[in-house]
């Protein structure tokens, strides 16, 4: 049986997501089954378009999804978006893998994505708002069922 790794991706910052996906891809390349459970701000990483609004959302949900988007900030020195732009430039220059590249690799390596249905419900997000790479929509019990079998479990 393969070892398992589970990650709760709660944060919606680019730097934290890169850390999570660096570990997820490495584990998946090291003969482990990897599951990432996206909840709260972590769902921004999975949004299909920058502003994930839809007709079925109420006014508060629309406001929320307009302000909290897939254009991810960074944890420090965000400077209204200048920080992420600078960081992306630096990473490209030093040939560090970008979040997009890591996410493509994660799918190639069969990393499983679970989107939290409670967070989706609160924010009015549906399958249509998120990328096709999401494998499952589920809750805490589905996550725990995987996490209790896993050897490595992280909250990021």
């Amino acid at each position: 049986m393969k070892d398992k790794m589970t990650i709760i991706l709660f944060s919606g910052e680019m730097d934290k997501a890169i850390a999570a996906f660096t570990l997820a891809t490495t584990a998946a390349a090291s003969n482990m089954d990897v599951t990432i459970f996206f909840t709260f701000w972590g769902l921004n990483i999975l949004k299909r378009s920058v502003i994930a609004t839809s007709k079925s959302q109420n006014i508060l949900q629309k406001m929320f999804n307009t302000m909290s988007t897939s254009r991810l900030p960074i944890t420090k020195l965000n400077m209204f978006g200048l920080g992420p732009w600078m960081m992306k430039k630096l990473m490209k220059k030093s040939k560090m893998a970008s979040l997009d590249e890591l996410m493509k690799l994660a799918k190639q390596l069969n990393v499983k994505y679970i989107a939290c249905t409670t967070s989706c419900g609160v924010l009015g997000l549906t399958k249509e708002n998120l990328i096709d790479d999401v494998n499952e929509f589920a809750g805490a019990a589905a996550y725990l069922a995987e996490a209790r079998e896993s050897k490595v479990n992280l909250f990021i």
Partner: peptide, 15 residues
């Protein structure tokens, strides 16, 4: 050469 973690390990696996 020029690549950072995790790329060398992942490329090794794929190769």
């Amino acid at each position: 050469i020029g690549l950072f973690c995790p790329m060398p390990v992942i490329k090794t696996k794929m190769e």
